[in-house]
């Protein structure tokens, strides 16, 4: 097999993995740190993708996408914070079951509303002119848009690192991952922290949705698709570990991309097979979180 083809696939896989990372990192934080299981996390991604296609249709590929990148994550943020403060907040006390029911219901509702609002037809948009086509680096043909995804994700990851390592919120999140019961005991406003983390997670998913839009068909099945993959990434990477999620997302993305060289369709199967394999060998994922199973 052609080495350069494989290399190109690896880069494509890394770009896909970057998108998975953006969605999974937020989910792993709200789950791992705050014990919130949000099955509707993929709905933020889907909403953002549809909103981006609308803006691009209105304003054209270049300006539309740029606008979307700024405006859409903010809209998703508002939506998520509204949901958290009005609905999610009410079911935390009941443990995981209320959350499962609520977020599953939400998944159905948002899906139905998107189908009504944006239409059930699959949409596709083109990337801005200057991001179309390929560049050749060391003889490997790489799609410009993939590189743009990598750059954007890199910036977001850097910001996330800064947030987790340097800010007070980050310290609280890390403390919560280590010992969820401790936070409330030492007087941290867990309520506000949950809202904040849910907001951050939604913004990450929103950014992912926008930059994913020009890559493929935007339709009403991507919410479930992405959230299931995100769960796979989280589990492989270890619950609550953002950097574990990064490694896992890249691994999953590359494995999926490489599998297309061997099998025609269904790269997803590789993701779940990988997840099953990792969990079989390491039942708590790559990063074992102390005191939890």
């Amino acid at each position: 097999m052609d080495g350069r083809l494989i290399l190109a696939q690896v880069v494509a896989g890394v770009a896909t993995g970057a998108l998975y990372f953006l969605v999974a990192s937020g989910l792993t934080l709200i789950w791992g740190a705050l014990g919130v299981v949000n099955l509707a996390h993929g709905s933020f991604f889907m909403l953002a993708a549809f909103a981006a296609t609308t803006l691009v249709h209105q304003l054209g590929p270049g300006l539309g996408l740029l606008c979307a990148l700024v405006v859409v994550p903010l809209l998703v943020l508002v939506f998520a914070v509204a949901l958290e403060t009005t609905l999610f907040r009410r079911v935390y006390v009941g443990g995981i079951w209320g959350q499962l029911l609520l977020s599953f219901g939400l998944l159905l509702v948002v899906n139905d509303l998107v189908r009504t609002g944006f239409g059930a037809v699959s949409r596709s948009i083109v990337a801005p002119d200057f991001l179309q086509g390929f560049v050749e680096i060391f003889g490997v043909r790489l799609a410009k848009y993939q590189l743009a995804i990598l750059a954007t994700t890199g910036l977001v990851a850097l910001y996330l690192w800064h947030l987790l390592a340097r800010s007070r919120t980050g310290r609280l999140i890390r403390a919560a991952v280590d010992d969820p019961a401790m936070l409330g005991a030492v007087g941290v406003d867990v309520k506000a922290l949950r809202t904040r983390v849910m907001g951050i997670a939604a913004v990450l998913a929103g950014i992912a949705g926008v930059i994913a839009a020009p890559r493929g068909a935007v339709n009403t099945t991507i919410d479930v698709q992405i959230v299931v993959i995100a769960f796979a990434v989280i589990v492989i990477g270890g619950l609550g570990s953002v950097w574990g999620a990064l490694v896992a997302a890249l691994l999953v993305g590359i494995a999926e991309a490489l599998s297309t060289l061997v099998i025609d369709q269904g790269g997803e199967v590789v993701i779940f097979a990988l997840m099953a394999l990792v969990l079989f060998v390491m039942p708590t994922g790559f990063q074992t979180i102390a005191g939890r199973d």
Binding site: L102, G105, L108, D112, L113
Partner: peptide, 21 residues
């Protein structure tokens, strides 16, 4: 055609009213 909407709202309502079923 909005059965998902109705079912979704129903499930959400139950989550709030009867988290244990």
């Amino acid at each position: 055609e909005h059965s998902d909407l109705v079912v979704g709202l129903l499930v959400m309502g139950c989550a709030l009213a009867f988290p244990e079923g």
